[in-house]
Simulated assay, not measured.
Amino acid sequence: MSQKFRRVAFIGFGERAQGLARTIATTLPEYAEVVAGFDVREIAFSDDIASRCKHFRFYKDHHEMLADPQIDVVFITTYEDTHLQFTLDALNAGKAVYCDKPVVQDLEQAEQLYKFVTSRSCYFQIGLNLPYFPVSLKLKELLDKNTVGRVTCVRAVCDLNAAFMRRHIMHKFAEPRIDFTCAKITHDTDLTQWLLNTYAEEVWGLADNFRWRRNGEAPVFNDTVVIAGRYHNGALFTQTLTSTGSTRRQVDVFGVDGEISANLYGDEIHVTKIDQGEETVKLPPQATLGHYGADTKILRDFFDYLDQGEQKPRWPERILSSLMVPLAALNNGVVRTGDWYRGIISNQS
């Protein structure tokens, strides 16, 4: 594997983009340098971005930025209703693309993007970083070892506190874009499918708004969600989203021989086996920068993927599977997601 120093540009240079740029500059300076950014807004840079990204150039036209031959990697961190076109523009310009989640805004765009990246030579990856959380990686290790036997059920919880909702979320959904259900728990539903090496076969869900409205008017997004379904491997699952309690991301995996339980924001995993009692698996102290170190891990993995030199999209099937569960839940009924998923995969193959 030949290593190459990358010059990175961002389409969209708001809070999330600057967080990723900071991670590259502070933890991966031997891999890449952030040299450019495009945004339609007037953006204020933090002091550390200004000091660490010394060759940074700001663009008001993303086509002009993509025409720069010195740029070889583009991160797309805009709102999801613009992701598809920006991704196509960047790939057509010959750039490697890292697109933040949710990758697109609906299933039609997901199908279009999947067919596009799998029909040509290109570098493409979604920024699904939840599997890179330390607890997630340990969960995956335990499940791959068949620690609790055949998995029968997964229960996942995403709880957000009111302060986070008001500070970070409300302004993003002042105008209808993608529903908050997809914007937030795309991560979570992708994680549980990844943990079990499977995909959702059928999904049922209900979503509603109970609190977060603007001036008491009609809601612009759902703030509470319940999802249930069955994976292709036969296991059942549930996923909930709430927005007025404490902050946690909890995953409980039940198998024929016991249970594995963990808060992804914690530092331990509880394993309970039938007739053997409970064992607590302690994790080493976690990094605090960039989602418990997950951003550094996924970015390093992404740059290593580019160095391998094989121009194939990474995890293209997750373009489909990461979106289909939360979007299906918004139908307030049962959706046969597996039929849709297999139909696209098989036709493209």
Score class of each variant (00 low, 15 high):
C53K: 03
T272M: 05
D301A: 07
E111L: 00
L323Y: 02
A228S: 14
A183I: 12
C99L: 12
T288F: 07
H63D: 15
F164M: 15
D179I: 05
N161K: 11
P313H: 01
P69S: 09
S46D: 13
D307A: 10
S261V: 02
K273A: 05
T247I: 05
I227T: 12
F75N: 03
Y305L: 02
K145T: 07
I24D: 10
K273S: 06
F173P: 06
L241T: 04
Q250R: 15
T224M: 15
T240G: 03
V8T: 10
V135M: 04
D275M: 09
R177S: 15
N92K: 11
Y123I: 00
T118D: 02
V34R: 08
E201T: 03
D159Y: 14
P219T: 03
Q18P: 12
P284M: 04
V203N: 06
T198I: 05
V335R: 07
G255K: 02
I185F: 09
A17E: 10
R57N: 09
R57K: 15
D301P: 03
N209V: 03
R52H: 12
A90G: 06
Q239G: 07
Q348H: 07
D339P: 00
S321R: 05
S322K: 04
H291Q: 11
L206T: 15
K140I: 01
E310N: 14
D100I: 07
A183H: 14
F86N: 09
Y123G: 00
N197I: 04
Q311G: 07
C99N: 11
F58W: 09
Q193H: 00
V325D: 01
S322P: 02
R41E: 15
R314D: 02
K4C: 07
T242L: 11
A9E: 12
N209K: 05
A50F: 01
I274V: 15
F221S: 06
N222Y: 08
H83W: 04
G94M: 10
R342K: 09
A96Y: 05
K140F: 09
D301C: 04
I298H: 01
R213C: 12
K4P: 00
E175S: 15
G234Q: 11
T198M: 04
E217R: 13
E64M: 10
I43Y: 06
R6D: 11
N215D: 14
A262M: 04
G37A: 14
P131W: 09
V225E: 13
W340Y: 11
D159N: 15
T189S: 12
A228L: 13
V281W: 08
R120E: 10
A262R: 00
S246G: 12
T118Y: 01
I274D: 00
K54N: 12
D188Y: 15
D304W: 05
P134R: 02
G37V: 01
T27K: 13
R167E: 13
A287Q: 14
L143I: 11
N233G: 09
G255I: 06
Y265H: 06
P29M: 07
L130N: 02
L299W: 14
L299A: 03
A44N: 10
Y305P: 00
Q125F: 13
R150M: 14
D188V: 14
A235Y: 01
L20E: 11
V157S: 12
V226R: 13
